[in-house]
Design a protein around this nucleic acid. Sequence first.
DNA 1: GCAAGGTC
Length: 906
Amino acid sequence: MVVRVLNVAEKPSAAKEISGLLSGGRGYQTRAGFSPYNKVFEFECDLDRQRVPFVFTSVSGHLKVLDFEDRCRKWGSCSPRALLSRSTSNLVSYVPSEMKPIENTLHREARACTVLILWLDGDSEGENIAYEVMSVCLSKNPRLLVKRARFSAITTQDMRQALDNLGSLNAPLNAMVEARQELDLRAGAAFTRFLTTRVRDEFLVSELKQVVSYGPCQFPTLALVVDRFLTIQSFVPQDFFVIDLTLRFANAGRNVSLKFDWNRSRLFDRFIASAVFEMCYESSIGPDQEQALVVAVQKSQRTRWKPLPLATVEMQKQVSRKLGMSSEVTMQVAEKLYTQGFISYPRTETDVFNRNLNLTELVQNQASDRRWGSFATRLLNPSQDDPIQFQWPRAGKNNDEAHPPIHPTRPAPPNGFESRDMDRLYEYIARRFLACCSVDAKGSETVIVAQVGAELFNAKGMIVERQGFYEVFIYDRWVDKDLPPVATGDRAPIEALELRTGKTEPPPLLSESDLISLMDKHGIGTDATIAQHIQKILERGYVSKNHLKRFQPELLGLALVESYESCQVSLARPYMRAQQEQSLKQISTNSIGKNEMLESALSSFGSMYELLENNARSLDEVFRRIFVQPNATDSWRILQPEVTRCGACTNRLALKQLNKPTARRRGNARTTEPVRRALTCSSCQLNLVMPPFGTLHAFGATCPICGFEVVRIENSERNTEYKICPKCYNDPPSAREVNASGQPRGAFRCFNCSQAGCPLATAVVGGSDTVCCVCPWCSSPCNVRKTNLFRVSCSSSRCNFAYFFPRFVEGVVVTDTTCTNCAAKKLEMTFLRTMLPPGTPQCLLVCIWCDQAYHTVLELTGEPRPRRTATARDIEGVHSAVRAGRGRTSRGVQRSRRGRRGGSRT
DNA sequence: GCAAGGTC
């Protein structure tokens, strides 16, 4: 019989790469599949020492989805409880319509082949997809001989080895995935339907659009946020005591003060601390005693290791921490960079580079970049006196045997990427890669140990001898700390000796990076899904991010966790997912059968369901506070029972109407009196007047000035929205916010505020409305604004000009000084010193267009200068906007502009 | 309308 082999990979890129390797230098032919993305490659290849035709195609992840049978698919068609039992509801697995083209390709190719080789990824999901592909192919050609290829990397060697050692499919591993799918679906659907319908039916919130969902990953994630919140709430500060010592040393003819740390760090017992301090103090008094003795000067070498190769979870954590991008956005941007061929596959657990990968070639690729190209060149062409040279990256401990660590695959486009986020993420990946391929940083640490009485104190100094990878990895710094020249036996006068009292502080709320680490630790989600789970609990309104981008539970999230706990239902505990994964693993090792495991897990979910249902009163109590609508007869008094959080007492503020609505006749038109309304705090006796129009929503962020929760006001008729702090709206923070004639600027919204560090405060000190220069593209006035970054942008709605200041610019003030060259207002800029090389000024007063001082700072950091010239594309953008008679093309920009201009003023 | 896991 003529042998013809059908091969299937998990994604199109893998099919193409493997085809390239297996066909050797002879190349392959490409044909279209029914899906435009999943092409078919054809070539000849040796199999069992015989040259045979190979047909290679791909799927795009899972081919099938799992759902309930029709009978149970509609909400309300059965009790949610029935979804938790295999005897009362059945599941069906089918190919959804969007996957039909791929299925059709497999059908067509399977008919014409005799052997099927499954080249799916080497993880459990890959095994499950292999089964899906097999069932689809066998349905059209039951006589196919099915084989599984196993490989850890897409290299010629691995491919050949896989082909010479074809195996069979791993049924227990597949059974494990099937069990996971079934459990997640049944439990997710049952609890979600129960929670959502209970809210709707019990409280008659018939138009409830919100889903109150349960998911085995989202709930433990929520629990992590709530846990930290409760830890902070219940934190009891403890007094501690520290002895601070400052000594005076002579250095180059000048006296310098040096602070020392106490070797005991701190003591918690007031009496012991006082006694120790007294002894210390006594021994320092006296004619010859007011000196400390230097008892040791210890020198040691210190190394800071270069970073490990980059895996997905680490990327999400670091990019959130260093660039302030959420993990969700990071993954979207990374996906874009990947599909455009700029970086390797962004979903990988691997933090060790395979020795077969040609890293020097990848480094060479970066040599053309104007920002870090010179570093790449130094790596490859080391000179004798240059410590920077190529060294193979350190090896991490994780390897998914499927993808390499994330690295750049080709140089950045010379004119930058289409979005700033792509620019920033690519830069991070490229710099991190070069840092991995360079050398550790080395420094020399000096510790001076001084003695007063019987107590020892230390001061540390550092001389960085080799910056190593820090030269390219600008996200971290290692800086010198000078010490005066001191030798053992020296005596130094005591400048200060004090017993200081401090209080222990609770840990902060979780940052995104903290949350990702905890999810990773507890095995919640995978590298590819962690970001989605975080996004989900935000969307569901269980948690929000405050102005510091830290996660705080919302009332609903807190209530869900608390009420589950009160019913003794352990679904909202961080370890639940890991525990479930553990039981599932037993299926893959054949320690337990799939059916047996499922029956037991489902029965346990069933018990929890019943527990929740029987104790639903406590759940109702909580939901009532959140969802109950005010009594219809009282509706002119209470409009929304719980809108936002009071900054004084943390109670929820209610929105009350202050006047009865009355209709009046003005001429022929019948008009309604505007509603006067206020947020009121029952315990603080506070009334905060609110704008009369628009719906109020809690925004999640907290005002850093007064601690009130920010409110988002949405006016759907005018299609505007803006944010206010309820307190600042009534009581603007200071005279900072006055207009040119010294009058307060009407109603005070977040965008009028210039509070440093608050991302909502987008006004600039000196006034957002102050013109700072003429637009280089269209000659309209330009203002300085602030969103995440400061920027100079054109005020014309028809022009897209904007110059974003680099991230190290942390403050911009428009001054009255003008540039003698171009008449632009000079800007006073303050820089974040930790992001700049040593010796850079911390503050500059400059014209950003003409002053060399600013341009020098930009050159030092590899940032581009502000461009006065527009590209052809920019100009065409302006022209087409003018032709179309509209403003900026982005809807979001248009909306926010209206907000700024007072279109939403009420 | 519900989950989590792949993937474009």
